[in-house]
Design a protein around this nucleic acid. Structure first.
Lengths: 145, 145
DNA sequence: TTAACTGCAAACATTTTGCAACCGT
DNA sequence: ACGGTTGCAAAATGTTTGCAGTTAA
């Protein structure tokens, strides 16, 4: 069982498909993104990447995230806490519910709202390029889901 | 026509109603907000306030905007350009369309979407406390509205 | 009078950048 | 080999804060 865990991650595959030059650091960041199913900020990405290569620099994280964002491999979010948070772009578009109590982020998807957004933009003579929908919530009382 | 323009602004009235101690600087900022019908950032607020009192400081703008925000007299937005932008809280809730070409911000209101948002939160066991909906658009071609 | 407010400059947090060394193709 | 990439530290950006002096009620 020599060098286990060396196969290309999902994010790395997407990079290759787009002709992004893969370096050791980018491979690590790609893998970190692939195995994350939350919405890490740059500090968290650095911490996770550092476990694989302790020499990796925060500047590289920033530069790589910008690169990945430009190639639509990740999406950047700002959930109102000042720093950017990232997630791998998924095929199915979704928006976010932010639990203000716990900070937890939940994804959801609603075609009806998507359709209405497009209509609103087009009614006013615009093409809808992108949108941001975030629901800030608190847990209902007498309920422990 | 001595000291014209000295009656209390709309924002100042709201401050008084909430028992906010009014100082010269806060009165100026209140007036600036009252006569603005765009979404100024702190730098713009400082410039506009400076025309009335050139000695006003950017720290006071920041502190006052935080105060006003806590009292729900203004709303803070982050339209993805890195700095916070403010507008006087209006009685009718609305969301924003951001024209990526011109940077112009257009307000809109849609009850259907509001209702759907509330349902989505409640279906998952949450109370909807706040939300953010922004449509990023570009102008349609052959059309010059 | 006195607790709150202001201006200034320094501190902060996040992100970007210049540059020399390094690496992938 | 060489152009792109990295690490480091410095700079840039937006915002907050400590403190001494000022002001509103």
């Amino acid at each position: 069982m020599s060098n286990a865990n060396n196969r290309t991650s999902k994010v790395e595959e997407r990079c290759l498909k787009q002709g992004i030059k893969m370096t050791g650091q980018r491979r690590i960041i790609a893998k970190v993104l692939s195995i994350s199913n939350d919405h890490p900020d740059v500090e968290q990405l650095l911490q996770r990447a550092s476990k694989i290569d302790p020499k990796i620099s925060i500047a590289t994280i920033y530069r790589t995230m910008r690169l990945f964002e430009e190639h639509h491999i990740v999406e950047r979010h700002e959930f109102g806490d000042g720093r950017a948070r990232y997630e791998e772009t998924s095929s199915a578009h979704h928006d976010h519910i932010i639990d203000l109590k716990s900070g937890k982020v939940i994804e959801f998807q609603n075609d009806e709202i998507e359709k209405l957004q497009k209509e609103i933009a087009e009614d006013r003579g615009y093409n809808l390029v992108d949108h941001k929908l975030e629901l800030y919530v608190t847990p209902k009382e007498n309920q422990d889901s």
